[in-house]
Design a protein around this nucleic acid. Structure first.
Ligand SMILES: [Mn+2]
Ligand SMILES: [Mn+2]
Ligand SMILES: [Zn+2]
Ligand SMILES: [Zn+2]
Lengths: 145, 145
DNA sequence: CCGTATGCTGAGAATGGTTCTCGTTTTAGC
DNA sequence: GCTAAAACGAGAACCATTCTCAGCATACGG
């Protein structure tokens, strides 16, 4: 690890080579990737990492404010660079998910004051709308089972 | 609670007795409950349900627009009545979570137009801010057990 | 009353993404 | 080089959730 750097500043956080590799794959991807997908892509990129290392470093990158994470309804976690800002509509019936080109934080309408945060340092947010997709509305009006 | 006269949905789905019991426990609770907690509370309420039934009916209640669900960082899902609207600040380092008295949808600033939804029928939303709590900011720059 | 179709239930097994264990390997500092 | 500390990774463990499937309840026509 780099021998200098100032603590408490995430942007100065010295990254190890594996963390840089991880981040590079995330930034090259055109969508959020799961831990397993990342593991797979690193294999192909001749950067074999153990699965434990992938997850370990994803956790560290998240604490460093470089990567964000979101849990899908199926339990998988998907990761993306912090600066990428996307949200989704997800169907509670079939699980289908599509992008939602709106962000409640970017529009600035929220009163996210320092008072509200009370010392908490925000890194990223998740905003997802859950409901019924068009086709699930049309199918059985909720077959009681 | 009156047994009927619920003026909400167009789809007047009759609930089975077990789904009503589930909903009652959720409404009586003062916080979101996990599937396992619900199972436990139903035992104590002399309404023994199998765990499979708890999860099955939670899924149905969600599709019916009566219950909402959110995934915690530890993988658990927690449930609440749809009308309850709360959000949280969650620390990516220690997992500590506290309420955030703000809702981007309630404030109405979002342009959630029909055009954007494209036939999707929204039921509920999740909005969570992730970052570093005060104590994790103070502790080691990136200490990990 | 049957007989049959249909759907709900739940104990236990299976699932599967993530985390943990712990011996090995690499790095940092001298 | 040498030693201590940190990072690594193969495989085991974890555990919330889902699946399986036989048993039970209900509906309804005959
Ligand atoms: Mn956003
Ligand atoms: Mn809200
Ligand atoms: Zn759907
Ligand atoms: Zn914390």
């Amino acid at each position: 690890m780099a021998p200098h750097a100032h603590p408490t500043d995430p942007s100065d956080m010295p990254l190890g080579p594996r963390q840089r590799a991880l981040l590079a794959v995330l930034q090259a991807a055109d969508a959020e990737l799961s831990g397993q997908e990342l593991h797979e892509r690193l294999k192909q990129a001749s950067q074999r990492h153990g699965l434990a290392t992938v997850y370990r470093n994803l956790r560290l990158l998240q604490r460093s404010g470089l990567v964000r994470c979101r849990k899908l309804t199926n339990g998988e976690s998907v990761y993306a660079p912090l600066e990428r800002d996307d949200h989704h509509l997800t169907c509670v019936s079939c699980g289908h998910s599509e992008p939602l080109p709106i962000c409640p934080v970017a529009t600035g309408g929220l009163g996210l004051t320092k008072v509200l945060l009370q010392g908490f340092k925000p890194l990223f947010h998740t905003f997802e709308i859950h409901g019924l997709c068009r086709s699930c509305q049309q199918s059985e009006p909720l077959a009681h089972g």
